[in-house]
Design a protein around this nucleic acid. Structure first.
Lengths: 191, 191, 191, 191
DNA sequence: GATGAATGAGTTTTCATTCAT
DNA sequence: TATGAATGAAAACTCATTCAT
C-alpha cells in the first residue's frame, strides 16, 4: 500500500465492503469496486498493487478495528465482572451490527483463495482480552468451568446471529434487545 | 453407458463441496470441480446447464437435507420437551459437524451473485418445527418468553460455532461436548 | 460414406436440410441433425466419417439431383427453342421451389469452411446444357447476343427469387405465375 | 486513449465482413475477427456484448446503408421513369458489387441462429421507394401489369447475380455491362 | 449396427491489470 | 495522479467425436 490520498483508501475500502454486502466475495470485481467508489478502475492500482493486496489490506484493517474496540472496552477492572462483561456485550453487539458486513467479509475472506500467507499469520490478539475475562470468571466460580473455546462459541455465536438479524432489520437494536440477549448469554455462562 | 448416471450428480455435488472447503466460493472453477469429480469438464454440462445452475441445485439439495433431518427428529411427542430438544441438539450438532462445508456453502451462497430469484423463494420449512418446539416450551413456561428469532439465534449461533471447531479438530465431538454444550444452551433458554 | 442402410443416409440428408432451413449452415449441430432424423448422434458416424464429410456428401448429392433434372429436360431437340426453354423454365421453377432448401444449402456451402478441395473440383456440368441452348438461341438470332454469363444471371436470378417467394408462400406456384415469369424472362433474353 | 473510439466499431464491422467473405458465417470466430481488426479479443466486448449482438448490429448497419442508398437515388421526379430507373440500376449494381459481402452476409444472417427477434422486426423501408417507381410505371402503362413481388424478383435477381460475378472478377463492371444488363432488365419489365 | 453419455479441444466470454493520454 | 479503453490470460461453455454397452 503506497502512501497517497488516505481518503481514497478509505473510499475504496468502503466501496469494497458495500459491494461485498451485495454480491459476496466471489462477486467482487475491480471495475465494480471502482464504480462504487466513484473512481476509475486504474486508480485503485495506484493505492493497491493487486486485487489480492486490496482484500488482504482490507482484512487487516477490519481486524484491527475490531481488536481495538475489544481491548479498549476492557480497561476498567474496578467494576464487577458481570458489569464489565455486559459493557463488552453491548459494545460488541453495536459494533458488529454497525460493521456487520466487515465482520462477514473477514469470516469469508479467511476461507478464500485470496488470503495470503502473510495475512494468515496476522495478529490474533482479539481473543486474548476475552480469554482473560472468562478465566477470571471461572477462577472466581462465577462462570461454568468449561473450555474457553466452548464458552466463546456461545458468546460469539449469539453475537453473530443477533447482529445478522439487526442489520437486516428483522430485529431492532434497542436497550431491551441488548438486555434480553445479554441475559440469555449470561444464564448460559454462569455456573 | 447409455443411461444418465444418477451417481454423477452426487459426485459433482461432493466434488463441489470438497473444493469449496479448500478454495471458497470465489475459487470454484468448473474445470477443478470436474477434476475433483474425476470426470471431463464437459460432462458437468450434461447434468447442469451452467455453473450458476449447478450451485443453485447444490444449495437446494443441501437445504433439503437439513430440513429433512430437522423434521424427522421431531416426531415423538411423548417424551418431555427437554429430552426431545436434546435429541435435536445432538442430531443437529452431529449433522452440522459432518456436513459442515455444506452448511457454510449454503450461508455464503445466499449472499453471492450466483443465487437465482427462483432459489431465493425456495422452501424454508426448516424453521417451522423448531418454532413449534420453542412455542410449546414458552407456553408451558419452561422457556424464556422471548421472541423466537432471539431464541433461535442462541441455538443456531452456538450450533454453528461449535460445529466449526469440531470440524476443524479444535474440539472433539464427544458425549461430554454434546452434554456440556446442550447445558449451555438449555441454561440460556430456560425460564 | 460406407454402404449400410441407404434409407438412413437419406434420412440424415433430409434431417440436415430441414434443420438447415431452420438454423442455417452455422446452426447445424450433429446432435440436432440426429434428433431431427430420430437416431442417435453416434449413428451418424456409422454413415459419415465426420460432419465435414456429411455436408460434402449432401452437397454432391444435391448437385447431382439438379444436374440430372436439367439434362433430362433437354433431350427433345425437335421442338422450337422457346418451347424447350419454357419446359426447362417450368421444371426448374418447380424443382427449385420444391427443393428450395437444398439449393440454398448448396449456395451457402460453396462459401463455407466446410467445403473440401475434393468437392470444389466436383463436376459442374449443370451449366453446360443451358449454355448449349443459349448458344443455339444466339446463333439463330432469337436471343440477345450477350455473354452467356450475363444471360444466365437473368435466368438464374429470376428463378432464385421467384422460388424463394414461392416456398415462403408469398407467391403461389400456379400456371399463371409460370407463364408470366417466363414471359419476363423471355422478353429480357429475346433479341 | 480515454474515449471510446468510434472508428473501432467500423473496424470491427469491416473485419467481420472480410472474414465472412473468407470463411462464411459458420467460420466466424471472435478471436479471428479481433485479429483481422488488429485488436485484442477482449476489446470487441467493450463495443458489443456478445457475438450475437455484434452480428445483429452489423446486419442492421448494413441494411441501413442499403436503404439509405436506395432512397437517396429516388429524389428527382422530373426525369423520365426509364432514366430514373436506370440511375437506380447503375447505382444499385455498383453498390451491390462494392458491398457484395455485406449483402451476402445480410442474406445468410437472416436465416441463421444468430438473428434476434428484435432484429427480425427491423425496418424494411428499402422496398417502398422501388415499389413506388414500379407502381408509377404500371399506371402509365410503361411497365407490365404484374405483381410488384414478381417484378422485383426480376430486378433483384439479376442485380444479385450480376454483382456476384462482378465481385468475383468473372465480369467487369464497365459502362457496357451496366447498359446491357439494364437493357435486359428493362426489356423484361416494359409492357 | 445403434445408442447416447462422456470426452476434451476449441470457442466464447470475463475481468484483473496495463498504459497512453 | 487520474482516467478508462485496451489487453490477453484464464475461465465458462460448446459440440464434434468416441466408445462402452
Amino acid at each position: 500500500m503506497k502512501e497517497k490520498d488516505p481518503n481514497k483508501v478509505k473510499a475504496i475500502f468502503e466501496a469494497t465492503i458495500n459491494l461485498f454486502a451485495k454480491v459476496g466475495l466471489s462477486g467482487l470485481k475491480m471495475s465494480e469496486i471502482a464504480k462504487e467508489a466513484s473512481i476509475a478502475s486504474g486508480t485503485i492500482y495506484i493505492y493497491f498493487d493487486s486485487k489480492e493486496k486490496l482484500l488482504n489490506e482490507l482484512y487487516k484493517d477490519s481486524k484491527q478495528n475490531w481488536e481495538k474496540l475489544i481491548s479498549e472496552r476492557l480497561v476498567n477492572k474496578q467494576l464487577p465482572l458481570k458489569t464489565r462483561f455486559k459493557a463488552i456485550w453491548e459494545e460488541g453487539l453495536k459494533f458488529r451490527t454497525f460493521e456487520y458486513n466487515k465482520m462477514v467479509f473477514m469470516e469469508q475472506f479467511t476461507n478464500s483463495p485470496f488470503i495470503s500467507e502473510d495475512t494468515k499469520v496476522f495478529s490474533n490478539k482479539s481473543i486474548q482480552p476475552i480469554y482473560n475475562i472468562l478465566n477470571e470468571g471461572k477462577e472466581s466460580l462465577i462462570l461454568k468451568d468449561l473450555d474457553n473455546t466452548i464458552l466463546l462459541c456461545l458468546v460469539y455465536g449469539l453475537l453473530k446471529e443477533i447482529s445478522f438479524y439487526c442489520q437486516s432489520d428483522n430485529l431492532k437494536l434497542t436497550k431491551e434487545l441488548i438486555d434480553s440477549t445479554f441475559l440469555l448469554c449470561w444464564d448460559a455462562l454462569k455456573a
